[in-house]
Amino acid sequence: MERGNRSAALAIALALCVLAALPFAAAALGNPAMTTLATRILIYAIAAASLNLVLGYGGLVSFGHAAFFGIGGYTVGILFHHQRFNETLFGLMLGTDQFLITLPAAILVSGLFAAVIGALALRTAGVQFIMITLAFAQMLFFLFVALKRYGGDDGLIIRRRNSLLDFNMRDDTTFYFVTLVFVVLFFALIWRIVNSRFGLVLGGIRQSERRMAAIGISTYRYKLAAFIISGMGAGLAGALWANYARFVSPDMMHWTKSGELMVMVILGGAGTLLGPLFGSAALILLETVLAAYTERWQVFLGPILIVIILFFRGGLAGLVDLVRKRP
């Protein structure tokens, strides 16, 4: 137990060092694209980690998490749009491009959506839960396709990244570090949550909801709280993505995006702390590598995915454990 903790801490410290050194290594190698690639991985790691909270720890298979990713992104996009054209939002307030306002706003709005969707969806379970979360995501997807005012199908271009204090956010390296800070904070939060009493109850619900109910726990509230936190995390990732890509579109909420997030969680190892980070890195690197060889990379990705699910249960994190536990 003690040794396990120590080696886990070591792994995290090592990962942090690598991540902190990465932009400098990229510059030294004359390959700045590495930094933006890493930024992408980190942002998706946040989204996957929030899905992992409900899916991996709580056992709730949400097939609509891209909706919250998109809501977070659109919050940033819409606030910027209103600031740029000096229009008021709902006749109440002007838009803004201040990172310290847009980011909490994105988290809050996606949390609100998660509260409403979760409150309704969690009345069901099993396949019905998978399908109802998918249904809500589809509704939001089509809603944003219909909103011509905010670009509709074509999406919304964000001309400049949000400003944060005196940082030069246009610089990709600076933005990478900003993202990294949020990744560290978010993973620390997840770590705190899963090791708290709340996290234990959540794990208990995954194993047997009936038993948790029998010992007098109102499971619905716990599931809903987890779902809201998870939605907020995905919203945070979406807000970062909107700044990274300087573009939001309904594609952010497409059901294939929800699928991708699930793939990341499973690829990395559901219900493990760093699994989503591994999963995000694995999927995005795999995409990048395969796409360099062939435009039709999905023809390889599909079978790779199937093989992993059929034969490597526990994902990459499970693989690490497997290697470590061997005498």
Partner: peptide, 17 residues
């Protein structure tokens, strides 16, 4: 269900491409 969703999702990617 999760494994089924993902494995058949992989099948979609493959067949479509």
């Amino acid at each position: 269900h999760l494994d089924q969703v993902l494995a058949t999702y992989g099948l979609i990617l493959f067949l479509n491409e």
